[in-house]
């Protein structure tokens, strides 16, 4: 028996909106510690890892570990039927082939339940080693989204370079080139507008902008994004999900020419 009640149901709506274009089908893993997901895109270039810790739910009952295979587009369709301020409850029986999403309005005058069929999904779980990163950039998520969107109008790839001067995003295409440099800015008064760069060593890596733009669908979840880089490792683009967890996108670099 699984019953997860999330007062901030809007968070789950935003999580699904940020996943559904990257991954078609995925297993949500439910255990005593939380509700999580790890899935790759179909070309095995990008991976998403989601964790919503059990403490973040108003009510969290998970009698035994369960894996719920869901089509993320269909799940997103159902969650779109919830209002942003609805309380969302996810329910499933151990042997059931369906999951129920219950939406309650904040003053309890409207209650809806949507039942969705579950799927059997063969998922390949990846072991992600703990890595020491050469550079970690924390910046406003809206700024990062804007940069990825702007650069993708000019080129297909972005070179992200971190030096002690700042973080530089560069692209080149048929019509020309573009470079955007963001300098460190502690923004004491408005921490959500800060750009903080922690650098052990300068690092420069090339990534496909198509995936970066897909990751920025998570922008409504958090004011800040963290971009962790090391030479010859996938970049990690992380958005916090309120106080309860995170959504992390991993993207393998392009091969330098």
């Amino acid at each position: 028996m699984l019953e997860l009640r999330l007062v901030q149901g809007g968070l789950l709506k935003k999580v699904l909106e940020s996943l559904k274009d990257l991954v078609n089908d995925a297993n949500f893993d439910c255990s005593a510690s939380g509700f999580s997901l790890q899935a790759m895109d179909s070309s095995h270039v990008a991976l998403v890892a989601l964790l919503l810790r059990s403490e973040g739910f108003e009510h969290y009952r998970c009698d035994r570990n369960l894996s719920l295979g869901m089509n993320l587009n269909n799940m997103a369709k159902m969650l779109k039927c919830a209002a942003n301020d609805d309380i969302v409850t996810i329910k499933a029986d151990d042997a059931s082939d369906s999951v129920t999403f219950m939406f309650e309005s904040p003053n309890q005058d409207k209650i809806a339940d949507f039942e969705m069929k579950l799927m059997d999904i063969d998922s390949e779980h990846l072991g992600i080693p703990e890595a020491e990163f050469q550079a970690i950039v924390r910046m406003p998520s809206a700024e990062f989204a804007r940069i990825c969107k702007d650069l993708s109008t000019i080129g297909d790839t972005v070179v992200i370079s971190v030096t002690k001067e700042g973080v530089k995003f560069s692209t080149r295409g048929d019509i020309g080139t573009a470079n955007i440099v963001c300098r460190q800015n502690p923004s004491i008064d408005k921490p959500e507008e800060a750009t903080i760069i922690e650098m052990e060593e300068p690092v420069s890596l090339t990534f496909a902008l198509r995936y970066m733009n897909s990751f920025t669908k998570a922008t409504p979840l958090a004011n800040q994004v963290t971009i962790s880089l090391s030479a010859d490792l996938p970049v990690v683009v992380e958005y916090r999900v309120a106080e309860m967890g995170y959504i992390r996108f991993y993207l393998a670099p392009k091969i330098e020419e």
Binding site: S43, H44, E124, L126, G127, P234, Y250, A252, K254, E257
Partner: peptide, 14 residues
């Protein structure tokens, strides 16, 4: 231009 690494180069499939 340039090729694309896949995640399997960096992470172990378990």
């Amino acid at each position: 231009g340039g090729g694309q690494y896949s995640l399997g180069k960096f992470f172990l499939f378990g």
